[in-house]
Design a protein around this nucleic acid. Sequence first.
DNA 1: ATCCTTGGCTACCGTCGGGTAACCAACAAA
DNA 2: TTTGTTGGTTACCCGACGGTAGCCAAGGAT
Lengths: 174, 174
Amino acid sequence: MITEEHHAIRRRERRAQTRTALLDAAERLWAERGIRGASLEDIANAAGLTKGAVYSNFTGKTDLLLALLERYTRADLGLEMCAREDEARLPVLLLVEFWLYGMRDYSAGWRIADWYAARRDTLAQGFPEENGMPSDQRATLAMAMDFGLTLQRLLDPDRVGADTYAAGMRLVLE
Amino acid sequence: MITEEHHAIRRRERRAQTRTALLDAAERLWAERGIRGASLEDIANAAGLTKGAVYSNFTGKTDLLLALLERYTRADLGLEMCAREDEARLPVLLLVEFWLYGMRDYSAGWRIADWYAARRDTLAQGFPEENGMPSDQRATLAMAMDFGLTLQRLLDPDRVGADTYAAGMRLVLE
DNA sequence: ATCCTTGGCTACCGTCGGGTAACCAACAAA
DNA sequence: TTTGTTGGTTACCCGACGGTAGCCAAGGAT
């Protein structure tokens, strides 16, 4: 039986779907071209919609950005991003975009900083406190190594091989 | 005595000065606001000039960008960028801008990749081959740790302290 | 069957930014 | 002094982008 609430729910679902579609498109295009490099119209078209849909679901570009940042920082990139490098390329690009944005916009900065902190905490719980180094410090170093190697490797996979990546992670994970 | 060549030289010098002034302004503004965030007019005005001066000295925005990249990759940031953190903020921001640009523009990508490689080589010469790890690999790891820690520390200096930075560099430099 | 809400579309505006062309002043060459 | 060149300014064009307003159709409510 189909009730009125049922309809209302389907309605909300459809709206959520368009929101998701827009966020997906923004995530992909902004990763590919940079935040200022993809316009709202580009994003809407990529989602099979028009710019109006964006303004119907978000108050503006920065709102869309913050919503994406919100969703992005909930979902977890697994540790060791460089493991499958082709797959990691776009997420890392977007992460760097967000880092830059956060460095310049204070209100977004704390959110990214918090995400990093949460990631470190999660990671630290996997490390037993050993060798005199606190586990949270070790987590910070692991993230740093992972990130620093990924940046070099994505830019120049020939000269920064998978073996170097493995050696780095081994060193920091003892 | 003032010869004709003397004049010609002063002329060339003045031109070189305006070029430098434009490059300086671009370096600062692009670091502060991002490459797409500062227009040619902004840059020219910051240098006390007008947009026309840019087009008199460079063929366009990307040419100015490449010239700056060229100059930037000649000058050397010392290793351990995070040592004096306030001083490092802008250079690191610009470096990340360049990294992103290089990841998306193939023709610029190899230049940045080469710069990284040269940095690694220079660094590697300071490392004796020891403990079974090749010195060039150690250089890669040192850069990765330095960079990864700097990114985290610039974003959140409270939670990523100088001690952690020191510990990371110690670990990788043995 | 009728009304009204909602979600998305279309057309439009103002601004901004890269790029161009005409112009002009300083200055070197004669 | 006159002439030509060079370095920079001014005014303008055009496309793109963020944002707004009015419209319209789908589809729930009554």
